[in-house]
C-alpha cells in the first residue's frame, strides 16, 4: 500500500516536472544565462568583431563611467526613481477608487468599463512612446497647464491660502498635473481590484447589513481589509510596470547607449544599476505594505 502511494506521488511529481519543464529550460537559456552574461559584460569592454565578440576585462570602469562620467545617467536615474515614488501611491489609490466605482450598479456601466480598460490596449509600447514626444499633444498640454481651471498652478495658489504645508502642496499640485498619466497607467490595476471586489463573498455584506452597519462602515470593515493583499500586488505591479515601460526615459537611455555607440559594456552597467535600484525599491515597498495587509487565515 505504502509503495503504491509513493509511486503515485512520484508520478505526480514527474507530471508536474513535465508540464513546467519548458519554462525551466527557457528560464535557464533565455533568462538566467543572459542575466549573468549581462553582469559579466558590465565588467568588460565589449567589442564586436567578425563572427562574434571579444571581451576585455576593465573592472568597475563601466560603473564609474555611468555614475561619474556620463552626463545623462545620474539625472535621468534620479528622476526615474523619484517618479516611481510619487506615482505608485497615486496609481494604487486611483485604481482602487475606480474599481469601487465600476463595481456599483448604474446605467452605462458596461460602456464605462470598456473605456476604463482601453488604456490596457492603447497605453503600451510604441503608442505611448510616440504620444509622449508628439508635437500637437505637447502644445495642447502646455496650453492646458497655463490656462485650465484645474491646473496645478491655480490649485497651488488656492491651497497656499489654506496654509497647507509646502511639501504636501508640491505633491498635490504635481499630482493634479499628472492626472491623465496616472489614469492611463491604471488599467490593469483596476482590473485586478475589480476581480478582487467580485470575489468578496456577498454574505459578509449581508451580515453587516443585518448588524446595522452603514455602507461607509462596510467599506472600512469589509472592503478595505479584504482587498488589502491586492494593494500589495498592485503596488508591485505598478512599480514593475513603470520601470519597464518604453516611455521611461531611463529605459530609452539604456537602449540608446547600447545601440547608439555608447558601448555595450556601459549599457550593461546601467542595466545592472537599474536592476539593483528596482530590487531595493520592491523589497522596501513589500516590507512596508505587507505590514498593513490583512490575511483571512
Amino acid at each position: 500500500m505504502s509503495r503504491f502511494r509513493l509511486s503515485k506521488r512520484r508520478r505526480e511529481a514527474l507530471t508536474g516536472v513535465f508540464f513546467t519543464l519548458p519554462f525551466a529550460i527557457g528560464f535557464v537559456l533565455f533568462f538566467l544565462y543572459p542575466f549573468l552574461q549581462s553582469i559579466r559584460f558590465s565588467l568588460n569592454h565589449l567589442q564586436i568583431v567578425s563572427g562574434g565578440y571579444v571581451l576585455d576585462y576593465v573592472g568597475l570602469e563601466n560603473y564609474r563611467n555611468a555614475l561619474l562620467v556620463n552626463a545623462d545617467f545620474v539625472p535621468v536615474f534620479v528622476e526615474a526613481l523619484g517618479r516611481i515614488i510619487t506615482d505608485v501611491p497615486l496609481v494604487v489609490i486611483f485604481s482602487f477608487f475606480a474599481a469601487n466605482l465600476l463595481n456599483q450598479e448604474f446605467r452605462g456601466r458596461t460602456a464605462a468599463r470598456v473605456i476604463f480598460f482601453l488604456p490596457v490596449i492603447l497605453g503600451a509600447g510604441i503608442i505611448l512612446q510616440m504620444e509622449q514626444s508628439d508635437y500637437i499633444m505637447t502644445q495642447l498640454r502646455v496650453a492646458s497647464t497655463e490656462g485650465g481651471i484645474l491646473s496645478g498652478a491655480v490649485l497651488r495658489e488656492f491651497l497656499y491660502e489654506l496654509r497647507i504645508p509646502e511639501a504636501t502642496l508640491d505633491y498635490v499640485t504635481a499630482a493634479v498635473d499628472r492626472i491623465p498619466e496616472i489614469i492611463r497607467a491604471s488599467g490593469v490595476q483596476i482590473l485586478i481590484f475589480l476581480a478582487g471586489l467580485q470575489s468578496i463573498p456577498r454574505s459578509l455584506y449581508e451580515a453587516a447589513d443585518v448588524e446595522g452597519f452603514t455602507a461607509w462602515e462596510c467599506f472600512w470593515i469589509i472592503t478595505l481589509p479584504m482587498l488589502s493583499p491586492l494593494i500589495l500586488t498592485n503596488a508591485i505591479y505598478t512599480i514593475i510596470d513603470s520601470f519597464t515601460v518604453m516611455s521611461n526615459p531611463l529605459v530609452q537611455l539604456v537602449r540608446s547607449t547600447a545601440f547608439g555607440g555608447g558601448g555595450f559594456g556601459l549599457s550593461s552597467a546601467m542595466g545592472v544599476l537599474y536592476f539593483l535600484a528596482i530590487s531595493v525599491i520592491l523589497l522596501a515597498a513589500g516590507a512596508i505594505i505587507s505590514r498593513f495587509v490583512f490575511y483571512e487565515e
Binding site: 542575466f35 549581462s38 559584460f41 519597464t244 537602449r255 547600447a258 537599474y274 528596482i278 530590487s279
Partner: peptide
C-alpha cells in the same frame, strides 16, 4: 521583476 533592458544585449 527584471527589466528586459537588462538582458537585452546578451
Amino acid at each position: 521583476v527584471v527589466p528586459p533592458q537588462m538582458i537585452m544585449i546578451p
